[in-house]
C-alpha cells in the first residue's frame, strides 16, 4: 500500500510518499499563499516525481501548522507525534528526538513502537530557536549557515542572557563593539541556544539514542555542545532532517490504512534526499 505525509510549516511545506519500508518520493518547497495551496503544490510535485496520481495514495496524513486546512488528508497528527515516529522509523534505535526548528524547540521521547510518550516544547519565547540564531548571526554579519563552522570556544565564554532572543542581540553587540574575535562571539551565540535547549531537555528523561532534527541540526557547534551538556552521542538521520515530520505523517497514514505494525526492516531512501 502507498501512503503519503504532508507537513505544512510556517516557512516550508514537505511531502513524502512511502510504500512499505521504502520512501518513493520526497519534496520540500517554500510555502505558497495558503496552507491549502502549499500542500497541493508540494503534493503534486511529489506525485509527479514518483509517477503517481492522487488516486494511487491509500491514505494521507497531514501535520504542521497548516494541518487542519489540507483537503486531501484523511487524518491529521500533531508535528510532535510525527517527528517522533518519523525519526524512529528511519532509525529504530532512536528514543529521544530533539527538534530545533524556526520558531519551536521540542524534545520528544518515543517508546519501542515509535509512539510519543512524552514531550516538552518551548514556552511563549523564541530564545533558543532557529529564528533567534538567524537574527543574531545577521547582527554580526555572519551567514546563518556558517555560524556552526566558524565557532571556536574561547577561554572564557561570553554569557549571553537568554531572556529574549532579540535582546540577546544587545549582549552580542556589546562583545562585537568590544572588538572580540568573531569566532568567539559565534561560539557564544551557539552556546546560548544550546543552553536553552539543554534547559528544556533536562526536564525529560534523555535516552542515549538521541537524534537532532530541524534546521538547527546542521549546526555542528550546537550539536557538539549538546552532546557534551547531556553526555550523549547524537545520531544523525540518514535523510534531510527537515523531512522527518512528513515521514512520520506518512507512517501514521500507513498504520491507519491497515492497522499493522511497522515492518521491522531497514528503510530504503532515494538518494536525492539522503545526507
Amino acid at each position: 500500500m502507498i501512503s503519503a505525509g504532508c507537513d505544512v510549516g510556517s516557512l516550508t511545506a514537505k511531502a513524502v510518499i512511502i510504500e512499505g519500508n521504502r520512501i518513493i518520493s520526497a519534496k520540500i518547497i517554500p510555502v505558497a499563499e495558503t496552507p491549502r495551496s502549499s500542500s497541493e503544490k508540494v503534493m503534486t510535485e511529489a506525485l509527479n516525481t514518483a509517477g503517481l496520481t492522487m488516486d494511487d495514495i491509500n491514505c494521507c496524513c497531514s501535520t504542521g501548522y497548516g494541518r487542519h486546512d489540507i483537503p486531501f488528508a484523511r487524518m491529521n497528527m500533531s508535528e510532535i507525534s510525527c517527528h517522533g515516529l518519523g525519526a524512529f522509523w528511519l532509525d529504530r534505535s532512536i528514543r529521544t528526538i530533539i527538534d530545533i526548528g524556526g520558531q519551536d524547540c521540542k524534545v520528544i521521547s518515543v517508546d519501542e513502537n515509535g509512539m510519543m510518550n512524552d514531550f516538552i516544547m518551548n514556552e511563549k519565547c523564541a530564545a533558543g530557536t532557529g529564528r533567534s540564531l538567524e537574527i543574531l548571526s545577521k547582527a554580526i554579519g555572519v551567514d546563518y549557515k556558517e555560524l556552526g563552522d566558524i565557532a571556536l570556544p574561547a577561554k572564557k565564554t561570553v554569557e549571553i542572557s537568554s531572556k529574549c532572543s532579540i535582546f540577546m542581540e544587545l549582549d552580542v553587540m556589546r562583545r562585537l563593539y568590544q572588538e572580540a574575535d568573531i569566532r568567539e562571539i559565534a561560539y557564544a551565540i551557539n552556546h546560548a541556544v544550546a543552553k536553552r535547549v539543554y534547559g528544556l531537555a533536562r526536564t525529560l528523561k534523555i535516552h542515549n539514542d538521541t537524534c537532532v532534527t530541524g534546521g538547527v541540526s546542521k549546526n555542528v557547534s550546537i550539536c557538539n555542545q549538546l552532546e557534551e551538556m547531556l553526555s550523549i552521542t547524537i545520531k544523525r538521520l540518514p535523510l534531510d532532517p527537515q523531512l522527518a515530520g512528513a515521514v512520520g505523517a506518512a507512517v501514521f497514514a500507513m498504520k491507519h490504512g491497515d492497522l499493522n505494525k511497522i515492518e521491522d526492516e531497514s528503510v530504503k531512501i532515494p538518494e536525492e534526499v539522503c545526507v
Binding site: 510556517s10 501548522y65 497528527m77 500533531s78 508535528e79 510532535i80 507525534s81 520558531q103 519551536d104 517508546d111 509512539m115 510519543m116 510518550n117 512524552d118 514531550f119 516544547m121 514556552e123 511563549k124
Partner: peptide, 26 residues
C-alpha cells in the same frame, strides 16, 4: 503559559493536540 487574550493559537493547538496524542498513547 500564556498571555491574557494572547493569541498564539497555532502553538497552543500543537501543544494540546500532541498532549492528547500522548495521553491516548499511554
Amino acid at each position: 503559559d500564556r498571555e491574557f487574550l494572547g493569541g498564539n493559537t497555532g502553538q497552543i493547538k500543537t501543544r494540546v493536540q500532541a498532549f492528547c496524542e500522548k495521553v491516548n498513547n499511554l
